[in-house]
């Protein structure tokens, strides 16, 4: 069995809500192996995005441990955590979060520039990635000049530019039509597989989730893996705890 790239244990996370605290994660544990793609589903507000923020080190858990490629994220100082995120983590967001003033090529080159790679090799790599994702003729277009699907493909290329070992996708098809969702999902799947990245995909799309290696439901602050029948028919019925 492969060594898991992502390993979390007993994650707790709460947020202030008025004069009380809203407990979102209650002892969540998750393991994702190299090359594995795990779909995380659940109701809105269940804490799916929070989980991705914690996994990428954008936020800190109240307690629990997060090991990414064997390194404990919680103990890293902010600067080191940012460096680690740049090298090991790729994010794809629902609203692509591309920088509007930069061309597609420049957006994709940014993770390499952030790690102080020279401009030309970074641009070269960006071009390769964009061509791989079928955007060879959109290199010099800025995000507002691209369609939703193209924007999301640029965002995927950007997340892969740093050759991450972990890919975190937060509803990447949430804003796309059926056909484009299919295309983007296939590209994420293919790209992640080819690079052996451990992928966590948060989605509401049952059909896409069912095509992942594993489907987990985030319910009442913990993750539950769906069994065979539920895997097939959806996750509205009570879940089985891990």
């Amino acid at each position: 069995m492969n060594e898991p790239i992502i390993r979390t244990q007993q994650l707790f996370k709460s947020f202030p809500s008025g004069d009380r605290r809203l407990q979102v994660l209650r002892g969540l544990s998750l393991e994702v192996e190299r090359g594995e793609m795990v779909a995380v589903v659940g109701e809105s507000g269940a804490g799916k995005s929070t989980l991705l923020h914690l996994l990428g080190g954008l936020d800190r858990p109240d307690s629990g441990t997060i090991l990414l490629s064997g390194r404990e994220m919680g103990t890293l100082p902010p600067e080191e955590r940012a460096r680690f995120r740049n090298r090991e983590v790729g994010y794809v967001f629902q609203f692509h979060h591309l920088l509007p003033e930069f061309t597609a090529e420049e957006n994709v080159a940014l993770p390499c520039l952030i790690r102080r790679e020279p401009m030309e090799p970074a641009r070269r790599k960006a071009r390769q990635l964009l061509e791989e994702l079928g955007l060879g003729d959109r290199l010099l277009h800025r995000p507002p000049e691209l369609s939703g699907g193209e924007q999301q493909r640029v965002a995927l290329a950007r997340s892969l530019a740093g050759d991450p070992s972990v890919l975190l996708a937060d509803e990447p098809t949430g804003n796309l039509d059926l056909h484009t969702s299919e295309l983007v999902f296939t590209l994420i799947r293919k790209s992640a597989c080819r690079r052996g990245a451990a992928t966590v995909l948060v989605t509401h799309n049952e059909r896409l989730a069912s095509r992942c290696d594993r489907v987990c439901v985030l319910e009442e602050g913990v993750l539950c893996t769906l069994s065979g029948s539920r895997y097939k028919f959806g996750w509205e019925s009570p879940a089985v705890k891990l």
Partner: peptide, 16 residues
């Protein structure tokens, strides 16, 4: 603000 969020997600440190 949103660009800053994206840049932080890409690994730009706060000092950056």
């Amino acid at each position: 603000m949103r660009d800053i969020g994206a840049l932080l997600a890409m690994g730009v440190p706060p000092a950056g």
